[in-house]
Amino acid sequence: MEPTSTAPLAARASGKRVCDMVAERSLRDATGGVDYVVQDNGGPVYRSNRELNFAYCRVLLAGDAKGTDADLLEVRVAHGTDTNLLRDVYAGRKPQKYPVAEVPGYVEPQSFVDPEGAEHPGAVAKAQWGDWTIFLTLRRSPEGRDPSGDVVALSRQVADSLKLSKEREEPLPSAADLGVTATPDR
């Protein structure tokens, strides 16, 4: 394991990238420098007209670990509006609002268990980034890091790397359109 930093991660990926979406240095810092392997890298997948279709990446602990207990990071990017995400945001059902202007979403701190049974802090971020939904899970964060801040920064790196716009082709459905009574700050 190489030394890692506890400084906040950059919102833009630079240098070598994992799955063409997140900075390798950021991944190392966010996970405490553990050895990892990239598995199931759907990476950015483009249509024949060179427009993004979807992107997927799963990063696992290196070694013999299998299954979701071995996951360090999972990134999914899909085209379209996630109405379940919007319902949760409008109704205030998630503890932390996604902290990027014009991007409805949430951040949720969680705990995850590794293959040896040890519990680690982590977080999930889900955001409606323009016409795209970004879902990012960080399952292992070392002491001294802010996993909620890390998932926001990593999801911003994904949006930047894939050149996703916050602009939408069609307006987002409103809370009323989705049959939800909005909370005042949503």
Rank of each mutant, 00 (worst) to 15 (best):
K166Y: 00
Y46D: 00
A91D: 15
V158W: 10
K97M: 13
E74W: 00
S141E: 11
E167Y: 14
Q128Y: 04
A23M: 02
N84H: 15
V107K: 02
E74F: 01
R76D: 08
S174N: 05
L172F: 06
V152D: 02
E169W: 00
L178A: 13
T137Y: 11
V34S: 12
K66P: 00
V18C: 07
E51W: 01
V38P: 03
N41F: 00
S14C: 07
S161G: 05
R12D: 01
V45E: 10
S5C: 12
E119H: 04
M21Y: 00
M21H: 03
L154N: 10
Y106K: 09
V77N: 05
L9M: 07
N84F: 14
V103D: 01
G33N: 13
E169T: 10
N41W: 02
V124P: 00
P173M: 12
T68R: 04
L61G: 08
Y56M: 11
R50D: 00
R140E: 13
Y36E: 08
E167I: 07
G67C: 05
A30I: 07
A65W: 10
V89D: 13
P184T: 12
T4V: 15
L178N: 14
W129L: 03
G33D: 05
S26F: 10
T133P: 06
V152F: 01
P115C: 11
P3N: 15
G42M: 02
G105W: 11
G43W: 04
V77M: 05
G122L: 13
Y56C: 03
R25W: 01
M1I: 13
L52H: 00
K163A: 13
L73R: 04
D114P: 11
Y90R: 02
F54G: 08
Q39N: 14
Q39F: 01
N41P: 03
L164K: 09
A62P: 04
L136N: 07
L85F: 05
E24P: 13
A11V: 03
R140P: 12
L72P: 08
R87G: 15
Y56A: 14
S141C: 14
N41Y: 04
T31W: 06
D64N: 11
P3E: 08
T137G: 05
D150Y: 05
R156S: 09
E170P: 02
P99W: 07
E102G: 02
R12Q: 15
D131R: 04
G43H: 10
V124A: 09
L9E: 14
R93W: 14
G92I: 03
P147H: 10
